Computed example of a mutant assay.
Amino acid sequence: MVAAILTPFALSGVYIPLLRDRNFNALIVLQTDLYKLITGFVVLALVFFELALALRKRGRRWKIAVPGSILLWRSLHIFVGVALVATVLLHTGGAVGDNFNALFLWVFFGVALSALMGVVAETGILESSQKYFGLVPQSWQGLAKRFPKVSKGPLIRKLRAIWLSTHIILVSMFSVMLGFHIFVAFYFQ
């Protein structure tokens, strides 16, 4: 679903000139200040909601009782993240932009893709019927015996160390850039 939502960004060089030539009024609506303001505030609300979801993870340490299971909160985080990607598409009209906005959007893509990597890796491992995973497929029996195998728990922890730290760094960069984007958007109006 996220890949489908991100597709217009890859094709913006094709469809924006067509939209400009064939339906200029639609392009004007996508670029009005009111449209950008409304979609921007929806994006900001979703970002704050995503950050509030971190309370579930930190709740025990801070002695805050937060209802619901970790699975519920993780699912909510994923669904709100997908909604955030879709709302960013609406906010930008699928255009990558120039200068700071382009860099800002690419950092956001990094956040989305690192999250996607984590979801796919963890779901694929947890739902697999395999108990052990190796570097070489099981079908290559002669070679597979020579390489060590890892069970699900340690494999997920090792993968999480890579994708989660990348995700947190990118989210931190995105948060700083979001503050700057908001400042610039209101300062130059």
Rank of each mutant, 00 (worst) to 15 (best):
Tyr15Ala: 10
Tyr15Asp: 09
Ile16Asn: 11
Leu18His: 04
Leu18Asp: 04
Leu19His: 06
Arg20His: 12
Arg20Asn: 12
Arg22Asn: 13
Asn23Leu: 09
Phe24Pro: 11
Phe24His: 13
Phe24Gly: 09
Ala26Glu: 03
Ala26Gly: 00
Ile28Pro: 00
Gln31Thr: 09
Thr32Ser: 14
Leu34Cys: 04
Gly40Phe: 00
Phe41His: 11
Phe41Met: 14
Val42Cys: 05
Val43Gln: 01
Leu44Glu: 02
Leu46Phe: 10
Val47Pro: 04
Phe48Glu: 05
Phe48Pro: 03
Phe49His: 02
Glu50Gly: 13
Leu51Thr: 01
Ala52Gly: 15
Ala54Tyr: 03
Ala54Lys: 04
Leu55Gly: 06
Leu55Pro: 05
Arg56Asn: 14
Gly59Thr: 05
Arg61Ser: 11
Trp62Met: 12
Ile64Gly: 02
Ile64Asn: 05
Ala65Leu: 09
Ala65Trp: 06
Val66Arg: 12
Ser69Thr: 15
Leu71Asp: 08
Ser75Asp: 11
Leu76Lys: 12
His77Cys: 09
Val80Gln: 08
Val82Tyr: 08
Val82Arg: 07
Ala83Val: 01
Ala83Trp: 00
Val85Ser: 10
Val85Arg: 01
Val85Gly: 02
Thr87Arg: 11
Leu90Pro: 07
Gly93Thr: 03
Gly94Thr: 04
Val96Leu: 13
Asp98Tyr: 06
Asp98Ile: 08
Phe100Leu: 11
Phe104Glu: 10
Trp106Ser: 09
Trp106Ala: 08
Val107Leu: 07
Gly110Glu: 02
Ser114Tyr: 01
Ser114Cys: 13
Met117Gly: 15
Ser128Ile: 12
Ser129Arg: 15
Gln130His: 15
